[in-house]
Amino acid sequence: MHIPDGILSAPVLVGGAVAAAAGVGLALRRIDERAIPRVAILAAVFFAGSLIAVPVGPSSVHLVFGGLMGVMLGLGIFPAVLVALVLQAVLFGFGGLTTLGVNTFNIALPGALLGGLLGPMIRRASPPGAAALAAVAGAGSVVGNGVLVALTLRLSSPDYAPVASVVVATYLPLVLVEGAITAFAAGFLARVKPDALSPQLT
């Protein structure tokens, strides 16, 4: 999810930046004062939560919260991810400044799509149903992110294409944990504050 500087080719970087800018622009046009605090809170959750990396196999993984952000923010996931990634790049050197656009797009797009697709069903469902659907959104956003990252690496250079077996061994646990945590959060919100599960964009 944090592709560093100096790996991707220029067309991929520019394409990612343009796509991310479009997403952020669309979101900011529709944002209102009810949505801003929520975007900020989830940006903070993503910023701090994805700093905690757990060693798995030969690598280390961390949560992304893409599914949860997609359901709760809709398109608002774009500015939330962008702000958090800027801070992670500047403060900790995670990812890079030239790859901000690509990284934002890779994380935000699967979340926004799954949020738009499953969000209406989650809002209609009972709390256990909402939790189950949210698990799919959470797990799916990790898979979507992984697919996009692999694509961007492969588009830049075949040398960087990841090895499937290593990736599955490393990220299967993350898919399961991300799904479980998204399910827990959405199930809890469905019981105590169902409003929180619909993006407050105008």
Partner: peptide, 19 residues
């Protein structure tokens, strides 16, 4: 659904990179 996701992952060589 999880089995399906695992299959998707296996087929698509996902990757993530941070620090």
């Amino acid at each position: 659904a999880l089995v399906l996701l695992a299959g998707l992952l296996a087929g698509t060589a996902a990757a993530e990179a941070h620090a």
